[in-house]
Design a protein around this nucleic acid. Structure first.
Lengths: 366, 366
DNA sequence: CTGAAAGCGCTTACAG
DNA sequence: CTGAAAGCGCTTACAG
């Protein structure tokens, strides 16, 4: 992998070249750029011209080595660079930070890294060693060892802000939390309020079958005194494409005896729910006549899919706004107190994929 | 924005600390890690233990400053971190490069940066100054000044590989090119072969209304001797959400007199096409009875949207494979010859959104 | 087998 | 108003 500079490679101009060209010291060049010390206007012009002439730009590694931390760098860490809310949040954070004068490259890895522990920890450690000004951790399922790296980063003077799903991350840092349990609780209550009593649950992804969303589901059932049935907790298999795992769930569901299968399904997320619905129709069923389906996120597929989806929103913009606010307050020294937490909840949006349980099904049940 | 180390901040261990703890020189520590010089096994153990003890990790900036280029860093540059093929490609490239032992953070900016020239150039310059081993430029609409930065990067010994849309980027580097013109040419020919003669065109995004896709559209029309009609070249407005601009196009289309509006529409891309279709149905029209619609990309929305979409695929995986192959051959010194170009084309996938032009419309036309 | 030291390209006290 | 020089934390010829 190693490669040495060949003699055909062009030399990159350094501060020394600029100093020589301008007939000054490197100190003067440095100060002419940074403004941290007064430089006579004429000298300044001389330096700037020489720099322009040579097309000089400072070597960031030298700058960072000399100054310690990288003051304008905020690293964005994620494990879910998906085709949905995860990526959208990062984009919005990036945009806001760029606007505030920071660079914010995304150091992410896709979905599969969530199950690849050593990789995850080494990624986080790399980030820490780069000594950015801050790290935004926007990921679900961050391993304790990776969190430990974050903690060290904070101890060493870095700013940490987290965007969490479901549960807070075990670290003393500002956190914006999406209440996943409540999200699924709301969708489940909606189905219950429509009279459904045989309810199924499915969450895409291998992670956390029994995480916050599951608990939200159970809590709603509990309040309505409706029993939880393990066989209606679908798994869908290990499929990368979200829609496809919805297809698998539809097949599993369709194979169940009509008298004893869910009449309402709580499916996380919209894309997976649409996958379910498309396959259900293909199998001769219809939604919501044969099953009511609630999705999650209220992303475009909820509106532009097979049928308009009843869903619970994921407040992407609000969460990003909170995060950026907490973070920039720290960065700019406006706030320096104890860690803060802001919890966001989604909202139920009723569309066409849910309907009251049909009378004959009510009978069948009794 | 500046911040100095407070005395509560923990000190990060350096190579000097490790050397002291192990009772050796920093040189020995360095070589014990890199293996570039023989180190007695016992000494090695001593060093490794001390490092573990202190939880030492080298400061990447010092390493980079000392060695010049960053040997295991490939920067991924993009201007389109979308919710679709753009992000998917980057993910796949990242995954492949990680597997090959490289780090590949995404230095991207969203869609709007494409129109923000200074930002774009400064991003590319920052990347160059970081002196990674290589830069992958996966973006459409890269400005000449940004390309100039890429060129300098290559002159200075960096490896450049491009993933282009439509036209090659004006630089001597390996390139994988997606033939956008052919993509739209194929979709247009499909409509023509179904008997449609009144054809409309819409490409989401402000960029390049008259780019390669437009030319593919016109070429197909030309071959069938069908006139191009400027008023059927839709604009859709400046809308971030791809589906929404499809909605706008549907409204524009529906307002046209029935006798004089397109019977076939070539819409880039699938999400936009589904947006069009959903709105068309809402307006009381139906697809393909009232209009045939071809999408582009063959992404999930083509299969899981309002109706299954006839579309032309975007060969994401094949393109990424090509790119990674070209790039790693360079990185590993397997290939060192002149720049190579690989062109990929998509394939027509026929589903339910297109149908032969109806007889009464044929009459109306004549 | 391993040290002592120069050098990478910056920044910033310390002088004048 | 600006220089001379130390220092950031590494790597790597140069010695022995």
């Amino acid at each position: 992998m190693r490669r040495t500079r060949t003699n055909t490679d062009k030399k990159v101009p350094t501060i020394t070249d600029v100093a020589a060209a301008a007939g000054v010291t490197t100190a003067t060049v440095s100060f002419a750029f940074s403004g941290k010390r007064f430089v006579a206007p004429e000298t300044r012009e001389l330096v700037l011209n020489a720099a322009r002439q040579l097309d000089y730009a400072p070597n960031p590694h030298a700058v960072r080595l000399a100054t310690g931390r990288v003051e304008d760098l905020i690293a964005l860490f994620t494990l879910t660079l998906d085709q949905g809310v995860g990526t959208e949040k990062l984009l919005l954070i990036q945009r806001a930070l760029y606007a505030a004068g920071y660079r914010a490259p995304i150091h992410g890895y896709d979905f599969h890294a969530a199950f690849n522990l050593p990789e995850q920890v080494s990624l986080m450690r790399d980030l820490r060693m780069q000594r950015p000004r801050g790290i935004v951790c926007a990921a679900a399922g961050v391993h304790p060892d990776a969190i430990e790296e974050l903690r060290r980063f904070a101890e060493e003077g870095g700013v940490v802000a987290c965007l969490c799903y479901g549960d807070p991350i075990q670290i003393e840092s500002d956190q914006v939390i999406f209440d996943e349990a409540d999200n699924t609780y709301q969708s489940t209550r909606h189905l219950l309020s429509l009279g459904h009593r045989r309810l199924g649950f499915y969450k895409v992804g291998l992670d956390r079958h029994y995480g916050p969303r599951y608990h939200g589901f159970r809590r709603a059932l509990c309040e309505y005194d409706v029993p939880y049935r393990e066989e209606w907790h679908f798994r869908g298999g290990d499929i990368a494409l979200q829609e496809e795992s919805g297809v698998v769930v539809a097949r599993e569901w369709a194979l169940m005896p009509v008298q004893d299968r869910p009449t309402g399904l709580c499916i996380v997320n919209d894309r997976t729910a649409q996958g379910f619905i498309v396959e259900a129709f293909r199998l001769g069923m219809s939604v919501p006549e044969d099953v009511s389906v609630v999705g999650h996120d209220d992303q475009p597929p909820a509106v532009f899919g097979r049928i308009p989806l009843t869903t619970v929103s994921h407040p992407v913009t609000a969460m990003v706004d909170s995060l950026v606010k907490l973070l920039t307050e720290r960065l700019e020294g406006v706030y320096d107190g104890p860690a803060r937490r802001i919890v966001h909840r989604g909202e139920l949006v009723i569309r066409a994929s849910t309907a009251p349980v049909s009378p004959e099904k009510k009978e069948a049940l009794s």
